[in-house]
Design a protein around this nucleic acid. Structure first.
Length: 422
RNA sequence: GGAGAGUUGGCAGAGUGGUCGAAUGCGGCGGUCUUGAAAACCGUUGAGGCGCAAGUCUCCGGGGGUUCGAAUCCCUCACUCUCCGCCA
């Protein structure tokens, strides 16, 4: 959610920004400004009425206390009349306030000036590359390798739960556990505080990070208890500080948190779903930052560099994309995607996206910090995956496969898995 | 799951219908005193909305109701604690 004052002062900027993000709805801004004006006038009117009746109520109290019952009765007569009017206006205000908020929630975050303007993924900029994509023709996709080894079992996953819920078996399970361990260790070294979070969240949390309204279809729901299964650790970890006023000394705060993630992925069945490419449940190590506004863009670079270092240490070729306005998403001001090379599929796979939200999430969550003596200011939030496990697993299996069908252990992981082959 | 008790400002804790946004204590901040510090004493100290301002409104777990007036009464939901049961 953007700051309404900012929108009113910069309507054209917001409209341009919406266009750049592919949300061509210029009227929305004007509707919001009009609605806000209505809201303000009504608030003012109601405040005046309430001030009047508060005053009268106090007079009544005073009269009752001094035993002047009849005089009190007279005022009660008078004030009961305006009561209905206030009630009517309050109902109206509730409606308008709700409309105002829902308009406000439909306005996307404004992209940072450094973000390329574009409509689709074609317009994303390749920000950097590392390593060289292996394009030899004998390289097999991970599902071939894993199936033959018996390390990944989709069929029993279907039997036990459904599609997209595989079992990882033996060495592959060990590799995944090891990677999680490695990622968290690296984050710890970089100053992140390790955290374990709930796997279910309530509605307020889903609203806080913007999963609802509109994106509830991405989440699994437990209606009996009014919970959602987390689609990413971002939700519980960012909401950890919801409705708080942090002290300036606390910032920056950096958390690392491993969780499974559940996504319904409704309507996304297609050619990209083979093997570990797209699942309903997958593990991810998430990095979350809470920082002062003036630090958030430097922090985004810090985050990107950290995540890139993980891929470098694993020896996986990757490219970093600076996402264009049209491919960036509703809530971000700037976003990098990291894509690892999949030699067996001859394509790039997204394994992380690192985003700055500025105050967009914080404003929703009422997450502030104390600036100086009295003033409060919204915190800036950022997050990035560090990293999403299944696609890293496939990249490792495909990158480290040998011609006789084995998989070597990456050197960096040998302190955890003390052998040459998985 | 059953029975009971609670939910008030950063914390502790009063307040059961009328100047209560809220006593008091602790903590925080400022000051006096002191070579400095502690102690003591004095002052100050919740968040948010509207408004150029004066000012005004809202918030005592969430939502709804009764009343001229609600932290205080009623309904409802959530959460916390205690006891019992069950359990990794």
């Amino acid at each position: 959610m953007l700051d309404i004052t900012f929108i009113k002062e910069n309507p054209q900027l917001v409209i341009d920004s919406m266009n750049n993000k592919g949300e061509n709805n210029a009227q929305l801004v004007q509707q919001l400004i009009d609605k806000d004006e209505q809201w303000r006038q009504l608030v003012h009117k109601i405040d005046l009425l309430r001030a009047k009746s508060n005053k009268l109520a106090k007079q009544i109290g005073a009269l009752m206390a001094s035993g002047k019952k009849e005089e009190a009765q007279a005022i009660i007569q008078e004030t009961s009349k305006s009561k209905d009017e206030v009630k009517k206006l309050e109902d109206k205000l509730n409606v308008i306030a709700e409309e105002r908020t829902s308009l406000l929630l439909r306005i996307p975050n404004v992209a940072h000036p450094s973000v390329p303007i574009g409509h689709s993924e074609e317009d994303n900029q390749v920000y950097g590359t590392w390593g060289s994509p292996d394009t030899q023709s004998w390289l097999k996709p991970h599902w071939d390798i894993l199936e033959r080894c018996g390390w990944l079992d989709f069929e029993r996953g279907v039997k036990v739960t459904g599609g997209g819920f595989p079992f990882y078996i033996g060495p592959l399970a060990q590799l995944q556990r090891t990677l999680i361990h490695f990622f968290i260790d690296e984050a710890n070294k970089a100053g992140y505080i390790e955290m374990q979070a709930p796997y279910f969240i309530n509605e307020d949390s889903a609203r806080g990070t913007g999963q609802i309204p509109d994106k509830e279809d991405m989440m699994y729901e437990i209606p009996r208890d009014a919970f959602f299964a987390i689609p990413t650790a971002e939700v519980p970890v960012t909401n950890f500080h919801r409705d708080e006023i942090l002290s300036e000394e606390q910032l920056p705060i950096r958390y690392v948190c491993h969780t499974p993630c559940w996504r319904r992925e409704a309507g996304s069945y297609g050619k990209d779903v083979r093997g570990l490419n797209r699942l309903h449940q997958f593990d991810k190590v998430e990095l979350v930052h809470f920082v002062k506004p003036e630090e958030s863009y430097a922090t985004l670079e810090l985050l990107r560099v950290h995540v890139e270092s993980l891929l470098q240490k694993l020896g996986l070729a990757y490219q970093t994309l600076l996402m264009c306005t049209g491919d960036m998403g509703f809530t971000q001001t700037k976003k990098y995607d990291l894509e690892v090379w999949s030699p067996g599929q001859q394509r790039w796979l997204e394994v992380s996206s690192c985003s700055n939200f500025e105050a967009f999430q914080a404003r929703r969550m009422q997450l502030r910090y104390r600036k100086g003596e009295k003033e409060t200011e919204m915190v800036h939030t950022l997050n990035g995956s560090g990293l999403a496990l299944p696609r890293v697993l496939s990249a490792i299996v495909e990158t480290y496969q040998t011609e006789n069908g084995r998989v070597r252990v990456p050197d960096i992981l040998k302190k955890y898995i003390d052998r040459e082959y998985l």
